[in-house]
């Protein structure tokens, strides 16, 4: 296991990942390394099929790399059991996807609080924080509504609040504005960026948008399985 300094919250070392195809083998990521400091915002851009989402899944511990390792705050997550990895992900990581993926049978507030329930911390302070986060994303008065009663932008704001509930050190966002119109996308991204800054979390943003990528501290470009532009490792 490589040691990282105290400010590095996420590190990927020599990651490799491929998938079997009927016609052979598709190497998606090749010898990819990356380090992200606490509170840093890094965007990852690339063409469709370049492996952005695969990289995000590897960094978030949702998939295991064929080679290399991922470290969260200096700890190699590949050495943990699947159950521990899930547990640690619930506590240290927040995730926002292109679709909000809110549970339709829960209200907005319950959806936000679900992150704390899964982490086993659904106490009074978590309930208060869920209400506070809804307030901060501008939905303080909509907590009792179900996702079906909200617009796409509102749902995505609930998803952002949910991702931040457990005060994660890392926030992964996979095309969080991909399903929204331009003005709503701008508003949601601005909110996400502001909240991440306020919470002191590191942000890994997968996006097609140059505009949003430019508003991050660093921007990496993924091409043919490699992080191009020399921005991979600090």
């Amino acid at each position: 296991m490589s040691e990282t300094d105290g400010r590095t919250v996420l590190a990927a070392e020599a990651l490799g990942k491929g998938y079997p195809l009927p016609s052979g083998w598709l190497q998606v990521l090749e010898n990819l390394s990356l380090r992200i400091g606490a509170g840093e915002a890094v965007s990852i851009r690339g063409e469709s099929g370049s492996g952005k989402s695969t990289l995000l899944h590897l960094l978030a511990g949702l998939e295991e790399p064929d080679r290399g390792e991922v470290l969260w705050e200096g700890e190699a997550i590949g050495r943990w059991s699947a159950a521990r990895r899930a547990r640690e992900r619930g506590r240290r990581v927040g995730m926002v996807f292109q679709a909000p993926h809110l549970l339709p049978e829960l209200t907005a507030w319950e959806n936000v609080l679900l992150a704390a329930r899964i982490a086993g911390r659904a106490d009074r302070s978590a309930r208060d924080r869920a209400a506070e986060l809804l307030e901060r994303v501008g939905l303080g008065d909509r907590g009792r509504q179900r996702p079906a009663q909200m617009s796409g932008g509102e749902r995505q704001r609930v998803a952002v609040a949910r991702a931040l509930l457990n005060r994660p050190a890392l926030l992964f966002a996979d095309e969080p504005t991909g399903n929204l119109d331009e003005s709503t996308a701008d508003a949601v991204f601005a909110l996400l960026r502001q909240l991440v800054l306020e919470e002191g979390a590191a942000l890994v943003l997968v996006t097609h948008s140059e505009r949003f990528a430019g508003r991050c501290d660093r921007s990496c470009h993924l091409e043919r399985g490699l992080l191009a532009g020399g921005n991979g490792v600090e």
Partner: peptide, 12 residues
């Protein structure tokens, strides 16, 4: 939604 629960730390 099941995938999301896994991503949020829900165990198998």
């Amino acid at each position: 939604e099941i995938g999301l629960l896994g991503a949020m730390g829900g165990s198998r």
